[in-house]
Simulated scan of single mutants.
Amino acid sequence: MAQPDAGSISIVVAIVAGLCSLLGAFIGAWVSRTSERIRWLRENQSEVFANFLEKLQTAAQSSFRIRIEHAEKGTDNAFDLIDAFADAKRYERIVRLYLRESHRQEFSDLVDRYWKCSASGGKHEPEKPDAKSTLNRIQQIFEAELRG
C-alpha cells in the first residue's frame, strides 16, 4: 500500500480546515442571530409590559376620580368606569402576544379582577385578593416572562 505524499496531505488538511471554517461561520451566525432575537424580544416585552402597567394605573386613577364625581352627583358611573378601563383592556390583547401560553389566561383573569376591584372602590369578597395583590401578581408574571 502506498503512503500518501505530502501534497495529498496538504490538500486534505486545507479542505478540512476550509470546511471547519465554514461550519464555524454558520454556527457563529446562528448563535448571533438567536441571541439578537432574544434581546429584541426582551426589549419589546419590557416596553409592552411597562406600557400596560402605565395604562392600568391610569385606569385605576380614573376610576377613583369617576367614583368620587358620581358619588357627589348621585349618578350612575357604570359606563364611565367601563370607558376608563377600555384602553387597558384593548392593550391586554397585545400583552398576551408576548406571554407564554401558560400565563395568558391567568393574566387575563387578573386584569378582570383588577378592573372589578378598582371599579368597586376596592370592595371585594374576603376570599378574593384585593387590587394591590392582584397588581403584584401581574407584576410577577411580567418579571417571570422577562427572566425567561
Rank of each mutant, 00 (worst) to 15 (best):
G148R: 15
E54M: 11
A88I: 01
K123I: 06
F26K: 14
I9A: 10
R65H: 01
T58H: 02
V16M: 12
W115S: 11
K116Q: 10
A119V: 08
G24Y: 08
A25V: 14
R39T: 00
K73F: 04
P126G: 05
S46I: 01
L146R: 13
D80M: 07
R100D: 15
L23A: 15
R33P: 01
L81I: 04
G121H: 05
R96D: 05
R67F: 01
K89L: 05
S102K: 14
E106A: 01
Y114M: 01
R104Y: 09
I38V: 14
A59R: 07
F79Q: 11
T34V: 15
K116N: 11
F26Q: 14
S32A: 15
R39E: 15
G18D: 02
R67W: 01
S63Y: 00
E127T: 13
E54D: 10
R96G: 01
A14C: 06
A88S: 12
I138R: 05
R39N: 13
A2F: 07
G7W: 09
I68E: 01
I68V: 07
A144C: 09
K123W: 01
Q57S: 10
G121I: 04
K128A: 12
F52S: 06
W115C: 09
R90L: 10
Y91G: 00
W30V: 13
S120D: 09
A2N: 09
V31R: 14
V31G: 08
E101P: 00
S46T: 12
E106Q: 13
R137T: 07
Q105M: 14
I66R: 06
E47I: 12
R104V: 02
A17Q: 04
E145W: 03
V12F: 05
I94N: 06
F64Q: 03
R104N: 04
L135D: 11
R37N: 08
D76T: 07
I141C: 15
A50K: 02
L53M: 13
F49D: 01
N136R: 15
Y91E: 02
E43C: 03
A29S: 06
Y91R: 03
E127A: 08
A6P: 04
S120E: 08
P129I: 07
L19S: 13
V111L: 07
F107V: 06
Q139G: 09
E92K: 09
A17I: 02
K73H: 02
E106M: 00
E43N: 11
Q3T: 11
S10T: 05
D83P: 06
A60G: 05
A6K: 12
R104G: 03
R104L: 09
D109T: 10
L146W: 02
H103G: 06
R33Y: 05
Q57Y: 09
L23W: 14
R100A: 13
V48N: 00
E36F: 08
S46A: 14
I141G: 15
S46K: 04
F107Y: 09
V12W: 06
A50G: 00
R96H: 03
D87A: 11
C117P: 00
A59F: 06
E54P: 00
W30P: 09
R96L: 14
I9E: 02
F85H: 10
K128N: 11
I138L: 14
V16N: 12
A84Y: 01
I94H: 02
V111N: 00
D83N: 13
A6N: 12
P126Q: 11
G148E: 09
A71V: 01
F79H: 12
H124Q: 10
